[in-house]
Measured scan of single mutants.
Amino acid sequence: DHWHVHIDGERIRLDGASEEFIRTLEELIRRGTDARELKEIIKEYLR
């Protein structure tokens, strides 16, 4: 599956992301997590 998110107007691909990770991201977004912080979390995950 190819997922991607838009954060700060930037399109970030989440290739190979699990549904669990996507749900976690959605939860963080709902909580109002800062965009820079979200991008860091995604970069760490994709390593």
Rank of each mutant, 00 (worst) to 15 (best):
D1W: 03
A35I: 12
A35M: 09
L28I: 07
G16H: 11
E27T: 08
H6P: 01
L28N: 02
G16T: 06
L28W: 05
I12G: 01
W3E: 05
R47V: 14
Y45P: 00
D34K: 08
G16R: 07
I42R: 00
E40H: 10
F21P: 00
K43W: 13
E27Q: 09
D1I: 09
L14D: 00
G32A: 04
E37M: 13
E27M: 10
I41N: 01
E19W: 10
G16L: 05
R23I: 09
E40F: 10
R11F: 15
D1V: 08
G9R: 02
K43F: 13
E26F: 10
Y45L: 05
A35D: 07
D1P: 14
W3C: 07
I12R: 01
G9E: 06
F21Q: 02
L14V: 15
D34Y: 03
D8T: 02
D15V: 13
E10C: 08
L25T: 01
D34H: 10
L28C: 04
E40V: 08
E44D: 11
G32S: 04
L25M: 06
E37G: 05
D8I: 02
D15E: 14
A35W: 06
L38K: 00
E19H: 12
E44L: 07
F21T: 02
V5W: 05
D15K: 08
R23D: 06
T24K: 13
E44S: 06
R31Q: 14
T24M: 11
W3L: 12
I7K: 01
L25V: 10
R13T: 15
R30Q: 09
D8W: 03
T33A: 11
E20I: 08
R47T: 14
R23P: 00
L14M: 06
I22N: 02
L14K: 00
R47Y: 12
R23Y: 08
T24E: 12
R23A: 13
D15F: 12
H2T: 14
E10A: 02
E37A: 12
R30S: 12
E20H: 10
I12L: 06
I12S: 01
F21W: 05
L14P: 00
R30Y: 10
E27A: 11
L25F: 04
E44W: 06
R47D: 03
D34P: 14
I41Y: 11
K39D: 06
L14S: 01
E19V: 13
H4A: 10
E19Q: 13
A35F: 08
E40Q: 13
H4D: 11
L14T: 01
R36T: 14
S18V: 04
E44F: 06
F21Y: 03
R36P: 07
L25P: 00
H6I: 15
S18L: 04
G9A: 04
L46Q: 07
R36G: 13
L46G: 02
R31A: 13
L14I: 15
V5K: 03
I29C: 04
D1T: 11
E40K: 12
E10N: 05
R31H: 10
H2Y: 13
S18M: 04
L38P: 00
I22Y: 06
H2R: 10
R31G: 11
H4N: 07
E26Q: 13
T33L: 10
L38H: 00
R30T: 10
R11S: 15
I12F: 11
E26M: 13
